[in-house]
Design a protein around this nucleic acid. Sequence first.
DNA 1: GGATTTTATGGTAGCGCTGTCATTATCGCG
DNA 2: CGCGATAATGACAGCGCTACCATAAAATCC
Lengths: 333, 333
Amino acid sequence: MTNANATLADVARLAGVSEITVSRVVRNLGPISENTRQKVNSAISKLDYVPNRAAGMLASAGSNLVAVLLPSLSNIVFPEVMRGIAEGLRGTGHQPLIGVTDYDPLQEEALLTSFMSWRPVAVITTGFEHTETTRRMLSSGRIRVAELMDIDSQPIDLAVGLSHRSAGQVTSRHLADLGYRRFGYVGHDWTADRRARLRYDGLVEGLAERGLSIVAETLNPGPSSTEAGKAALATLLAKGAAPDVVVFSNDDMAVGGYFHCLAAGIEVKRDLALFGFNGLEIGQCMPAPLSTLRSNRFLIGKQAVEVLLSTPKRPDETQTIDTGFEIIVGKTA
Amino acid sequence: MTNANATLADVARLAGVSEITVSRVVRNLGPISENTRQKVNSAISKLDYVPNRAAGMLASAGSNLVAVLLPSLSNIVFPEVMRGIAEGLRGTGHQPLIGVTDYDPLQEEALLTSFMSWRPVAVITTGFEHTETTRRMLSSGRIRVAELMDIDSQPIDLAVGLSHRSAGQVTSRHLADLGYRRFGYVGHDWTADRRARLRYDGLVEGLAERGLSIVAETLNPGPSSTEAGKAALATLLAKGAAPDVVVFSNDDMAVGGYFHCLAAGIEVKRDLALFGFNGLEIGQCMPAPLSTLRSNRFLIGKQAVEVLLSTPKRPDETQTIDTGFEIIVGKTA
DNA sequence: GGATTTTATGGTAGCGCTGTCATTATCGCG
DNA sequence: CGCGATAATGACAGCGCTACCATAAAATCC
């Protein structure tokens, strides 16, 4: 209010102390007499002093920024991961710098390049698919790197997530145990979403173990959505393969499938069983709670941050944290 | 790779030019001969030089950061706003610094204090409820400020959103025109979500115009969710007031209400009409598409950024942008 | 063909802060 | 009461970059 943009020096002058003393008061460092602290604090509020992190960062060569690269915000899964990240960051004095890559490695590279100039203490991204340049920037070893969601490959530094391949396998075993034999699959464009593809592969593998296979599948172009699931299930059923269960690439799609059944008068489970992935709230509120696999999105974000910040220096060994998944039995399969 | 952390000076030395020339190449400023540009660029890649924005910012007194304060990430509405913000930011070289306030003005203040030290060019927040300190920081006038979602009050600088009061009024007029007379209301905790409250007020006002009023209402404690909507509708109906239409605080709640009807065998619209707010995708995929009001969340974020960045200096006059809303007729009312 | 403009480059002085190394009270203690 | 320890403060250099002002060479002009 008072001043245009007060600096440490202004505060020091007004308080009648040296700059470094003000700096210490602001950062709560070293021994400061009560008297001095008060003088400084009153000067600070009188001048509406706001520290300049750029200067601080330059002088101390350390930022408190964490770069976060998310594929999308349209899919509720990533905001939930972000919630976990924000929770992990809370109270640590760290701030997230967020970018949305649209599942595009080149976009990721561009954002990362830009983020790196802020000298973040850590980078959080998703999956293992990165451009050469991205990989090089992240590998240089100075900062910590977490790759979230997936643990099916070797991480650069830290991976936090679940095995999607294994999730797919568990799905098919579970459904086969329930007696289903004619498996349908409804998915979305998985060139972007490699993890959906991994789950599909796991599913096929799990079925193969039992001598089963997928009798019909439909891939809806574009990203996953309720609408896509609804439309794609209709397409699948029109093919006439008469599956007794349909596995969806995720819950959004599965909820869409459920809506299709409601609209088409198909009695879910008796006529056609449905199975999703993620365990979203919406699926559990339906008249017939969705049978699905719970992934722990919030936990993934939170754990990643906790590990990253607890060990600021990258360990020699890479680390993989499995946040697991559980079957939600539900009433649709 | 090569170097620990190369600086401009290192690049200049290797390229055999002055620092400022390197700086110009990096920033694409001023006239540079093709020859020099190449020498510099090759030195840059040889050293894996990454500019240091902290230094740049300090020297030029300008950041490219936009502070974004969102109440929540659990509610899909805000990720959608954020998508709009990210879209508006794309290609401008600006980066968002994101904080989640949990609908808490004190949390907002804490985050803002922290963000201000990065000298953002603009601050984007939601609503008009801020602490005194927050208001003071934002009013100082140096940076641009957008308050999103709501336009029912006087903004500090720029407001982008819709009139929730008016949305409530339109809702009741629309439903009254359709012949509904016995209005129920199902909401969530609106001490946090002031806009839901405004819609409610508008709804009541709109009803009053027609000599109508709400015959029964239930407020579910806690934030809005599908589950909350489902439970609260059950509670409401148990009260026995026999409404012919229920207005929900938003689509999440309304979808929950729809699920309750499905489960309880209530034929939607004939036995009980449902009306939401937001126009989320999920509501439109249901067997009976939800009757609701579309708010333009993506647009709110995008427009805010566009206006903010197009006029870096705060104008003398405050500005309000109405992104409007439209009735989605649907099949539930 | 000298004056003027344009193109290409560099020197220097900070931006606002913190790390390092002093320096000066003040205190406990045998 | 003198000595090391602790508490409280300051001087100063420099983090890596860019704004500002200059300079030199080449191009343009009447």
